[in-house]
Structure formats: structure tokens, C-alpha cells
């Protein structure tokens, strides 16, 4: 393993890794910005024929996703606990909170998978078989929905893997009080994914 590169005499007062993660998140946010800008352009152009989300998903669909959003936010809260307990040195507790965080991410992905299956099989059969009639509304409603939630879902999946690696690091004693910043950096990513979801949820489901 290459030696960790230390900060120089003139620095921003944080580890290199934290700046690296922040700059990466700027880049990632711009990727979502590209997708969201595309969404906005397609939806709010004159005569786009965009459906009301309430009518397409149904009230139950939106409520299910709202609950899913709640679970994801809770997993962000538990991530905060992981960091707090690691900094205090309660590694056993930190491990358990991390398990809760991982579970939150997996639950989110599960519900999203269920929702995708339902939507593609029942609402948008034209996606699978060329013969099926496309919906009466602008079919980019479906395209951008899958695009945005899918790209976000991939981020959640990566985040779950990231958290599993951190969990193993905690278990094997490679992460403790002294390098809790590793957890903090993982947390930055996890909270970012959460924040992006709130934007996606608002754009795609609510307004």
C-alpha cells in the first residue's frame, strides 16, 4: 500500500481525503444537474404533454416512496451516530449503527426494485415489447423517471458497498478513534446521496 500523503504546511486544516471527497461530490452533483436539466427542459417545454405524477403513480405509489424517503433519511441519521460513536471510541456501537445504515440502504433499494418492476410490467409495457402501445402522455415521463431514479439507485448501491467496507474496517479494528475521518468521509458521500434523493423525489414525484 502506498504511503498516505500528508497535508503540507499551508493547508485547509482538513485531511486530503476530505477535500478529495468534496471535490468529487461537486462533480457528482453536476452529473445529476445534467440529468435534472434535461428533465426540466423536456417537462416544461410548451405542449410537452407531461402527466401529473399523482395520476400516474397513484396515491399509494407516492406514499410508498415517501416512506422509502423517510427510511433513507433515517439511515443518514444512523450514519451520524456511527461517526459520533467512532469518535468516542465505542466501536461496538458504531458497528451496530453502521449495520442499521446498511440496512436502510438495502431497504431503499428493495422498495425501488419493487416499484420499478410494478411500473415497467403494469404501466409501461411498451418498454419491453415493441408491439405494446406507448402511454397516452409523453413517454419521456417514464424515460426520465427511470434515468433519474436509476442513476440515484446506482449511487445508493455504491454507498451500501462503501458502508460495508467501512463496517468491515470497524470490525477488523482498522478504523478507530484515530482515523474516524474515514467514517466522516464515507458519511459525506452517504448524506450527499440522501440530499440528491430529496431533489429527485421532489422533482419526479411531488411537483
Amino acid at each position: 500500500m502506498a504511503a498516505q500523503v500528508e497535508a503540507g504546511a499551508e493547508n485547509l486544516g482538513v485531511e486530503n481525503g476530505k477535500i478529495g471527497m468534496w471535490t468529487f461530490l461537486v462533480m457528482d452533483a453536476m452529473t445529476f444537474a445534467g440529468f435534472l436539466a434535461g428533465y426540466a427542459r423536456l417537462r416544461w417545454s410548451p405542449g410537452s404533454g407531461w402527466p401529473m405524477p399523482y395520476e400516474t403513480f397513484g396515491v399509494i405509489g407516492i406514499q410508498l416512496t415517501a416512506f422509502n424517503t423517510f427510511v433513507l433519511i433515517c439511515s443518514s441519521v444512523s450514519m451520524v451516530h456511527v461517526l459520533a460513536e467512532t469518535m468516542k471510541g465505542n466501536l461496538k456501537r458504531a458497528e451496530n449503527w453502521m449495520l442499521a445504515t446498511i440496512f436502510g440502504g438495502l431497504f431503499f433499494l428493495g422498495v425501488q426494485g419493487y416499484e420499478w418492476t410494478h411500473l415497467i410490467m403494469d404501466k409501461w409495457p411498451h418498454m419491453l415489447s415493441a408491439g405494446a402501445a406507448p402511454p397516452a402522455y409523453n413517454s419521456n415521463f417514464a424515460s426520465t423517471f427511470l434515468n433519474l431514479t436509476g442513476f440515484h439507485g446506482a449511487h445508493v448501491a455504491v454507498g451500501v458497498m462503501y458502508n460495508v467496507i467501512m463496517y468491515l474496517g470497524l470490525r477488523r479494528g482498522k478504523i478507530d478513534q484515530d482515523n474516524a475521518s474515514l467514517i466522516e468521509i464515507a458519511g459525506l458521500y452517504w448524506h450527499f446521496v440522501d440530499l440528491i434523493w430529496i431533489l429527485v423525489f421532489t422533482f419526479v414525484y411531488l411537483i
Binding site: 415489447s129 419521456n140 417514464a142
Partner: peptide, 13 residues
């Protein structure tokens, strides 16, 4: 069949 972001016939641009 599923994505029409840039296809005017599918409502894209």
C-alpha cells in the same frame, strides 16, 4: 423503445 430524450416523435428534443 423506452427512451426518447432526443427524439421529437417520442416527445423528446
Amino acid at each position: 423503445a423506452a427512451f426518447h430524450f432526443f427524439d421529437p416523435q417520442g416527445g423528446g428534443d
